[in-house]
Nucleic acid binder design. Structure first.
Lengths: 192, 192
DNA sequence: TTGATTGTCTAGCGGTGCTAGGATCGAATC
DNA sequence: GATTCGATCCTAGCACCGCTAGACAATCAA
């Protein structure tokens, strides 16, 4: 059995290599540059090997998205845990979220813009995605205010952050006033 | 000279046909289905004809975006003009904006998500885009509140709407509670 | 009628995601 | 140790993509 185990280990390792390489390539040159040919060349295997791990390019994007969602959740939790009162926690959350989006644009796209074949906002939504939302909810639920459902408030706040993140990076919003926009959002939306 | 004028008219007409057909195809089957081959077939000309009007597919997307931006501005102005007080105007604006995004998803993508080769938030930004932002500003500037720049407030409010629009359509947010999220946004962000 | 110019099309380039089918390698059996 | 056999991987190729060079036809000016 040991031989089979070794093979499985190696296979899992190669799968991680594929995901990591796709992510790296996407961050370096954008998702358009992540072609199956280039990806295969970088991992030093032929194209069909990719298809023995994933159904297609979509699933590779999905894998990067799941990995990224876990990191995003961790980043948000770390930032909120280190902050003082509710107001500061929300502010820290917003900064952590936007910081992640700015530092990992390709990964952010994989999670929230591209089609990775993942289910969202359903029962069969993968755990990392649910958990990322939960990380937001834990902090934002505190400041929803009376008569407003924490989930609904979190969704709305999240959408606002998402809008800032995507419009800024797509050049639709000038980048210099980001800080003030975030402050405005935090001040007005959250009830402390 | 009349012959030349006629030719120019026909050429302009064909250009409008290209843009309208691209838009139609995008709304019917998504932008991925808008290939130069299919587009050429639908307008009953060969592929190279497209390239005598536009530099490439990107510019066609850009043309659809400009057309859409003008419509969006008109829709927003019509909705706000018909509303009573400031609070109602903002609410009407939000509904009109999200309604446009929901009814014309492909056009909305052309304006705000895809690369149409257009400049945004700069001096050389095409007029329809500037005007669409102006339409938002006219209404939202009223409710920015003291000490908050109307432009900055408008950008922030707009980003929030954009987040709701895109996350909802991408299946990242369940569609049923949209109404309540919009209300929350309007209530909390605007100062009446 | 001829010649030049304009307009359009056919055909093709290098690229994409994806896959069928053959070659190769390594593990288990005799 | 030789042999079988199954898993693994690669070569080659499909249909499609955006885009363009060059041949061809239609139109106009002389």
């Amino acid at each position: 059995m040991s031989v089979q185990e070794r093979k499985e280990r190696e296979r899992a390792k190669r799968e991680r290599l594929i995901v990591a390489t796709a992510r790296e390539l996407a961050e370096q040159q954008g998702w358009d540059a992540v072609t199956t040919r280039r990806l295969a060349e970088r991992i030093e295997y032929s194209q069909p090997v990719l298809y023995s791990h994933f159904r297609g390019k979509r699933e590779i994007i999905g894998a990067v998205a799941l990995e990224g969602a876990a990191e995003l959740a961790a980043a948000v939790r770390a930032a909120t845990a280190a902050a003082g009162g509710p107001r500061e926690r929300v502010s820290a959350l917003a900064r952590a979220y936007l910081g992640f989006a700015a530092r990992n644009p390709a990964v952010y796209d994989a999670i929230f813009q591209l089609d990775g074949g993942l289910a969202y906002a359903q029962e069969d939504t993968p755990e990392p995605l649910k958990d990322a939302f939960a990380a937001l909810l834990e902090c934002l639920g505190e400041v929803a205010g009376d008569g407003v459902a924490p989930g609904l408030f979190t969704e709305t706040f999240w959408a606002a952050l998402h809008g800032l993140a995507t419009l800024t990076r797509a050049g639709r919003l000038p980048p210099q006033d980001t800080e003030q926009r975030v402050e405005l959002l935090v001040d007005r939306l959250s009830v402390v």
